[in-house]
């Protein structure tokens, strides 16, 4: 029987594509507002610290970061192929490794945020 890992890499890509389509523009808008000097209330240190210390919020943030990074990594892999870079195994290993490393790092930082 032919085996393929395609569903495993494609599933999170589709989920991440949908999630980023709904969420990423507004997240960018939030930090853009902060950069322009109109930081939303939630981005004040005490508010964000308390918000991110909730277990459910931590889990949600890790899921959002994983799916966003994974779908971007998958699309970057395909784009590298489209641009003539045909070392697919190497590219796939690199981009997925960055996605996983970013997710692990985010989880580690979140674990340092104990409820106040």
């Amino acid at each position: 029987m032919a085996t393929s890992n395609k569903p495993i890499v494609w599933g999170p890509f589709a989920a991440g594509g949908t999630l980023t389509a709904f969420l990423t523009p507004v997240l960018i808008l939030l930090t853009l507002l902060a950069g322009l000097g109109h930081a939303p209330d939630l981005l004040a240190y005490d508010a964000l610290r308390a918000f991110a210390a909730h277990g459910i919020v931590k889990l949600g943030l890790v899921v959002v970061i994983f799916l966003s990074l994974w779908s971007a990594a998958h699309r970057l892999r395909i784009t590298c192929y489209d641009l003539g870079l045909r070392a697919d195994t190497l590219v796939a290993t690199l981009v997925y490794a960055v996605a996983i490393a970013g997710t692990v790092a985010a989880a580690a930082y979140l674990l340092r945020l104990n409820p106040v």
């Binding site: 990423t24 960018i28 964000l48 970061i65 990074l69 970013g102 985010a106 930082y109 979140l110």
Partner: peptide, 16 residues
């Protein structure tokens, strides 16, 4: 989208 998400990870680091 990838670069922005990595920037968010850096933000979590700074928050921690």
């Amino acid at each position: 989208i990838g670069a922005y998400t990595l920037m968010l990870v850096v933000g979590l680091k700074r928050l921690a």
